[in-house]
């Protein structure tokens, strides 16, 4: 079970709603992923949210909505987007995304920390998208975030766990859940993240832009489950050489 802000979820695979061909495919993919938590960009939600096809589909699935602040360029805009999302959807969950960089959409650590503090104080369950910076993740934890969402690689890049050594430190140090948010391109990479002990992963591009998004969602669901199982089972240590005997310390044994 994944626990976020005192809520428990059976699935450790979070998904998104962007980049799909239409709302039906999105809905079927989310269902196949068995996700309990789905993120959606507030900027894409129709002004009269009652008419929004994506929202309608998600409500039919009964998942927990995780509105995000995508498009915000600074803390002030992100706080505004979060408040707008609370007004429109009545949800305390917010995925904090602040990316002033318009090409690689990399998160601004300074503005993210500022906004996280403000929103946590206002009572939001804040899940910040951030760089794989262990110190920043501790600071985000200190200001009251419900989890941290460090990136594995640039968002949408499908490059996998490029930040692995830093993710390992984040996992080791965190006392809130760690969700790898960006860059996971293949089920094997999601599994590798789960084996490392991250609490959950968020996958959007790799599912939405697959030739068959529904089948890909299923593949990710089983990979995440397997990876978690392996982590919980306690993976054996890996060695680069065989460890057959004790040639260096054998002299301690009494001679036969």
């Amino acid at each position: 079970m994944l626990t976020l802000a005192n809520h428990t979820f059976t699935s450790r695979l979070l998904t998104g709603t962007g980049k799909f061909s239409n709302a039906t495919i999105m809905k079927n993919a989310v269902a196949a992923a068995q996700s309990n938590i789905v993120t959606l960009a507030m900027k894409r939600v129709a002004s009269s949210s009652g008419q929004d096809q994506t929202l309608k589909a998600l409500r039919e699935l009964g998942v927990t909505l995780l509105p995000n602040t995508s498009g915000a360029k600074n803390a002030q805009e992100a706080v505004f987007a979060a408040e707008l999302s609370y007004e429109a959807l009545g949800s305390p969950w917010i995925k904090l995304e602040i990316h002033p960089d318009q090409r690689y959409l990399l998160p601004d650590p300074i503005e993210t920390l500022k906004a996280a503090e403000i929103l946590a104080k206002k009572g939001f369950h804040v899940l910040p998208y951030c760089g794989a910076d262990p110190v920043l993740c501790k600071r985000l934890e200190d200001v009251g975030c419900a989890a941290v969402m460090p990136l594995g690689a640039p968002i949408g890049s499908n490059q996998g766990l490029q930040t692995k050594p830093f993710l390992q430190i984040i996992v080791e140090q965190a006392s809130i859940p760690v969700i790898v948010d960006a860059g996971i391109g293949k089920p094997s990479e999601a599994m590798a993240a789960m084996e490392m002990g991250v609490d959950a992963v968020l996958v959007n591009t790799a599912i939405a832009t697959a030739q068959n998004p529904v089948a890909m969602a299923e593949a990710f669901a089983s990979a995440v489950e397997t990876g978690r199982k392996a982590f919980e089972a306690g993976l054996g240590a890996t060695f680069s050489q065989a460890q057959a005997s004790s040639p260096l310390t054998a002299f301690l044994e009494p001679a036969v």
Binding site: A41, M42, K43, V45, A46, G71, A72, E77, F80, A81
Partner: peptide, 8 residues
């Protein structure tokens, strides 16, 4: 996509 922005 008809809308992709918030009234910042």
């Amino acid at each position: 996509v008809w809308k992709d922005w918030m009234p910042f």
